[in-house]
């Protein structure tokens, strides 16, 4: 059991978390945030292992990981 929370407003849509995720369960949202970026979002949350690679690579410290 693990989950991530992506702070949609901190995210600048750089996409670095996408290749970092070994489960390929992060995609870019179709809706933009207040700053005008398309933030990252998680799909298939049940597959998340909480490895935190996405959070490690996030330059905006926008991802929290829970386990």
């Amino acid at each position: 059991m693990a989950k991530i929370i992506i702070d949609q407003e901190r995210c600048k849509g750089c996409e670095l978390c996408i290749p970092a995720c070994p489960k390929h369960i992060i995609i870019m949202s179709e809706n933009f945030n207040k700053k005008g970026y398309y933030p990252a979002e998680q799909i298939n949350p049940e597959e998340c292992t909480g490895c935190a690679f996405c959070a490690l690579t996030c330059p905006d410290v926008a991802i929290e990981v829970y386990k």
Binding site: K12, L56, C58, V61, V65
Partner: peptide
């Protein structure tokens, strides 16, 4: 919570460009 914002960072969002490694 096993990963979050460290206390030694303020809440202020970084002014760096998207994807810039300064934030890391």
């Amino acid at each position: 919570k096993v990963f979050g914002r460290p206390e030694s960072l303020t809440e202020t969002p970084f002014t760096y460009c998207p994807g810039c490694h300064h934030g890391i």
